[in-house]
Design a binder for these strands. Structure first.
Lengths: 111, 111
DNA sequence: ATTTTATATTCCTTGACACGTATATACGTT
DNA sequence: AACGTATATACGTGTCAAGGAATATAAAAT
């Protein structure tokens, strides 16, 4: 039960780099090729390419070839893993919601 | 609209350390003091204390004092931020679900 | 008051990684 | 074929963070 949800920390290491996080953010709504990412994030091209390699190897992105261009887009799997990892922590606020509800019920009953 | 959900990468940097991730995992179901964490994760005490400081400074955990002991527990805020950050990426699978639904509807209609 | 227990902090060393520059590869255009 | 464009890779360098050992702090027990 708690064996599920136990996650390798490497995914977080990958997201812990500001430029990589921005790359993912830029790719949320549209596919982009390397040059476009270089322009949007004003980094050098090698920097972007290296970050893209890291993201590719970790399965966060994928690219299709369009002539000399590589067009990158997001893959869902690692994000789903994050969502699963987060699941057991959601009780932190659900629990509080329950407590609030109980409190409000209590108030109601004491009227 | 996309300004919300844009997250500082430091939270991920913090989660990118295996021992810290395990500390959070251990604290999911129960409060623990430092000594208990040292035992569970077999690290040296200074290592655990240093990781706890990082987690404290980032708001992931909090501790109450019990005599010489510091009893640590999770705080919800950073986890909620992660949940919010994840939100726009959920369309990656919702979108696919929609596509699947459409496909199935299509199949249905063609009977 | 002294000693023991529990935790935090400091200093040092080492390893990982991010960036820049330069270069390689591959496709397109002329 | 030669040149230009688009992307990837290699190498050297600097920064930062993790871990170990030693020490500091604080409360408890004797």
């Amino acid at each position: 039960m708690s064996m599920l949800h136990d996650m390798d920390s490497t995914a977080f290491t990958i997201l812990g780099e500001p430029t990589r996080l921005r790359i993912l953010s830029e790719l949320r709504d549209e596919e982009l090729h390397v040059g476009e990412l270089v322009a949007k994030l004003d980094c050098t091209q090698p920097t972007i390419s290296k970050h893209l390699k890291v993201l590719r190897d970790a399965g966060f992105v994928e690219c299709r070839v369009d002539a000399q261009r590589r067009v990158y887009h997001l893959k869902q799997q690692p994000f789903k893993s994050l969502d699963d990892w987060l699941e057991p922590y959601r009780q932190l606020w659900n629990r509080n919601l329950d407590a609030l509800e109980n409190f409000l019920d209590q108030q109601e009953n004491n009227k």
